[in-house]
């Protein structure tokens, strides 16, 4: 009986916290795609001035814990005058973190496109930007959907780290519910189930996308 009461009492709050985590995830994914694409293009540009900062970014992010990156953004940056709300700091931190991995995925995708694809587009008179947009990226996108899905799911799960910077997402909310009810088993299982629903939604969408745009 207690279980039923506490879950029903806190369920709306948990759902709201889950939705917040999902929103942060979607925004962070968008940011990571922009960053990842730009970084991959810079790294493969053959121009050292562009490749160096891109390489540093990937090296730094991959070599440091996500929690430290989040702390640098939320607690560290205010010291040099850059202040963000927990929500914005969370999106920026997760987006930056994921962007480095997306960059590597995109770079692998670019390298998987046969040289002949670039050459036939150049031979027809396409300028680099047009060639990238019309010929290369549409093929890269199809290749990288599975690894990008993994990365999106990682980002979603990483939103739980934002509990450390007071973002009232699912993990922090769950902890508060447990503090009030002393029912860790019920609530952590509940939280896990909600995370599962969200990650399943993401991978379902990816599967649909892959089917929709597969190459015949």
């Amino acid at each position: 009986m207690d279980l039923v009461r506490s879950v029903t009492d806190y369920l709306p709050g948990m759902l709201r916290a889950g939705v917040l985590a999902f929103q942060i995830t979607l925004l962070a994914i968008l940011l990571s795609w922009v960053l990842g694409l730009a970084t991959a293009l810079m790294k493969t540009s053959g121009n050292a001035l562009l490749a160096a900062p891109a390489g540093f970014y990937v090296w730094f992010i991959r070599g440091t814990p996500s929690l430290i990156q989040i702390f640098i953004i939320y607690f560290g940056l205010p010291q040099i005058g850059i202040r963000m709300s927990p929500f914005v700091a969370g999106v920026v931190a997760l987006g930056l973190c994921s962007g480095a991995y997306v960059a590597e995925v995109v770079r692998a995708g670019l390298m998987a496109i046969p040289k002949g694809q670039w050459e036939s587009a150049r031979a027809i008179g396409m300028a680099p930007a047009l060639l990238m947009r019309r010929i290369i990226l549409p093929q890269v996108v199809r290749i990288i959907v599975p690894p990008l899905t993994n990365e999106a799911i990682n980002t979603l799960k990483n939103t739980s780290l934002l509990s450390a910077i007071t973002v009232m997402e699912l993990t922090l909310y769950t902890q508060m519910a447990i503090a009030a009810t002393f029912r860790p088993f019920d609530f952590y299982i509940m939280a896990a189930l909600l995370y599962l629903v969200m990650t399943t939604l993401l991978s379902r969408f990816a599967t649909w996308f892959e089917r929709r745009f597969q190459i015949h």
Binding site: P114, G116, Q117, E119, S120, A121, A123, I135, P138, Q139, R142, I215
Partner: peptide, 9 residues
């Protein structure tokens, strides 16, 4: 080209 290089998408 030898390898056609049509755009598969």
């Amino acid at each position: 080209f030898q390898s056609f290089n049509l755009w598969p998408h």
